[in-house]
Design a protein around this nucleic acid. Structure first.
Lengths: 238, 238
DNA sequence: CGGCTTATGTGTGCTGGCGCACAGACTGCC
DNA sequence: GGCAGTCTGTGCGCCAGCACACATAAGCCG
């Protein structure tokens, strides 16, 4: 369980942070600040990736399309990560939607700059490989979770994960939005969230949600939350 | 749709094949042939990865555990790929089960040899990055599929994917095994497979299954099959 | 204020997949 | 041949989540 003190984090990106000083200095001039405004679409599937984003605060969700209309979140990226991994993997276009799910800001790099920065034996490629691994783990665990666990538990997990990444107990989201994240109907979210509210674990109204009792929420969440968190923590500890 | 002629493929691994001649020659002495026998467990979760496997025929499945007993396939690896990606990503242990799902053979490399072969500006790291991307795509699409599509469609998709990688219309598997792949109950597999058999699309008995009409099967499979296949083909075309 | 839009709550079937409990059927082995 | 183990088929009750159809309610703005 992260201490409350860990929630309010300084506005840096942990990948960039982990670079050796000199390598970071070489990269720094190319990094441009960029505001993440809620709901903004960073990529659509098939889009050419022109910039990659290192969030320093806020969250970006990676969403897969579910035929007509629906979507399903396949990855969450916060301060620990990077949006635009395909560039690093030699692919120029995005396979997913990437949407700002929590307002904040990011540092951007052009795709070309990322490519040159990862072309030789620097630390960055190593870091990105490890990060790719952790995203992979997250997705793999989510796949299992989505298939097997009831909505309530998945909702609790999702709230905790965004809380960890947002560094805040309060964030903007509608039930409609949540239904896209979890890949379920909006009505189902209404029921599950209503139950949590009745238990005084969360409070929400018209697009703003507050987590009141994270610990109790964690008790309801499926083990996937712990599993994913452990994986991330161990990678960052490195 | 792959032509029938494409089904029987020469026993090489496409990743190794794609390497420049000189780089391959440097690697060749370290590659040891290894028989893939049906049902054999390559890794358990948490295992130290000592060798990585480049299948030249046969298939290895990557399975995630679903709490008690059950599993769910999160990746299929055949001639196009490599089992042991975590090594490349700087992680020494396997997060998943890896099980031989179709007999065949592979070339192995020690984890240490892979690490040294990917440490500098060679082609192999690039290749592996692209492969990581395609595995990622596969997993992401499967996650969507598992959550939204009925068992029949998923079964059809799975059979076709296996066929593509096995290079054969006939393979060993029990319903029990399939239920682990699809993450559903064995009885559900019985029903779905029975329906396919009634339509004369497949035939099976006591652990051996034959695909009779791949084209008709493709019509029943969800679009995920096409989507995943297209992604792979485009990556290999490079 | 009143009307519009957006967010949320609810109710009523329906159905796909689960859990459980067996019943054949085929294979292998002693 | 007979027994045991494995693989497969089936039936029944149950329930989570779906689809559809509204009903409030809360903010937004003229």
């Amino acid at each position: 369980m992260s201490k409350a003190s860990a929630l309010r984090a300084p506005p840096t990106n942990q990948l960039l942070d982990a670079l050796p000083k000199d390598e970071y200095r070489r990269l720094a001039p190319s990094l441009k600040p960029f505001p993440l405004v809620f709901g903004e679409v960073i990529y659509e599937p098939g889009d050419l990736i022109r910039h990659v984003y290192f969030p320093t605060s806020g969250i970006i969700s990676l969403l897969a399309k579910v035929e007509e209309g629906g979507t399903l979140e396949v990855g969450i990226v916060g301060r620990e990560g990077l949006v635009g991994m395909p560039v690093f993997m030699g692919v120029k276009t995005s396979p997913n939607h990437a949407v700002v799910q929590g307002a904040g800001s990011a540092l951007t790099l052009t795709a070309a700059a990322l490519r040159t920065s990862t072309s030789d034996g620097q630390s960055l490629p190593r870091l990105l490989q490890r990060y790719a691994y952790s995203l992979w783990s997250q997705l793999s665990q989510s796949a299992v979770c989505n298939l097997n666990h009831p909505i309530d538990a998945r909702l609790a997990r999702w709230l905790l994960m965004t809380r960890d990444r947002m560094g805040s107990d309060e964030f903007q989201l509608t039930q409609e939005f949540l239904s896209n994240m979890l890949g379920v109907r909006r009505e189902a979210v209404s029921k599950a969230a209503g139950a949590l509210q009745d238990k005084n674990l969360i409070r929400y109204s018209r697009g703003t949600l507050t987590i009141l009792k994270p610990a109790s929420l964690a008790a309801l969440a499926c083990k996937c939350y712990r599993t994913i968190k452990r994986e991330y923590d161990s990678l960052l500890a490195k």
